[in-house]
């Protein structure tokens, strides 16, 4: 354990990168998920097809493959991204696609009566979306988004393979420096566990905030 204490700053630097990357890519994924999810349930066929292709493509190839592709191929196409931009974009695109499916299914689960009511009030499409559909759907989305956030945090470990000094990268380099793997990996596992637990409790709190004032609570 003295070894772990000696390398505490390496661990902390790694945690900082992991957290930073998780937050940035989660925000990007959230935006993409809402845009693609709404587009997938739109009346316009072009939008449905475009978002369908996006979702199927990014769900069909693995996150690591996408990261490698962005990291190695984009420079040849004349687009130079920093590793951080690359990682944020890769994880954001991948989890945006998973999130889009969540958004789509929750939008579909909004009861027809609500839409009829919105039509009766003469709401425009965007008003219906903003005032009726999204607030209703958002509450249903929260538990599913919570799972996705945990998946995203775990997936950030992949960025260590495209040279970003996140927690996994630091753990790996401490192992190569010290030839001691057991303790280092155990501590790393524990840190990821703690980060996941904190994220899960944060999402539960958000869920409570969003469903405040509703008597029905969250539908099963």
């Amino acid at each position: 354990m003295a070894l772990i204490w000696e390398y505490r700053f390496d661990f902390l630097a790694g945690v900082w990168w992991t957290v930073k990357l998780s937050v940035l890519s989660a925000l990007l994924a959230l935006v993409l998920a809402i845009v693609a999810g709404v587009a997938r349930s739109s009346k316009l066929r072009v939008l449905r097809i475009a978002s369908g292709v996006y979702v199927e493509f990014f769900r069909g190839t693995s996150a690591l493959v996408q990261l490698f592709w962005l990291f190695y191929v984009l420079p040849y196409l004349g687009i130079d991204l920093t590793p951080l931009q690359c990682a944020t974009l890769g994880l954001g695109l991948c989890f945006g696609a998973y999130g889009a499916e969540v958004v789509r299914s929750c939008i579909q689960a909004v009861p027809q009566g609500q839409l009829d009511a919105a039509a009766a009030l003469n709401f425009s499409y965007f008003q219906t979306l903003r005032i009726v559909i999204l607030p209703e759907a958002l509450i249903m989305m929260m538990p599913l988004f919570s799972n996705l956030l945990i998946e995203l945090i775990k997936a950030t470990s992949l960025v260590s393979l495209i040279t970003i000094p996140d927690l996994t990268f630091q753990a790996k380099s401490i192992i190569t420096k010290t030839y001691s793997s057991g303790n280092v990996l155990l501590v790393t596992l524990a840190i990821y566990l703690v980060i996941s637990l904190i994220a899960a409790s944060f999402m539960r709190r958000m869920e409570k905030v969003l469903s405040r004032g509703r008597q029905t609570g969250q539908p099963a």
Binding site: T168, K172, I175, L185, L189, Y192, L197
Partner: peptide
């Protein structure tokens, strides 16, 4: 379930 597969692979 709450730790990355990559770390488990390394373990």
């Amino acid at each position: 379930r709450s730790t990355p597969l990559l770390i488990q692979v390394y373990v």
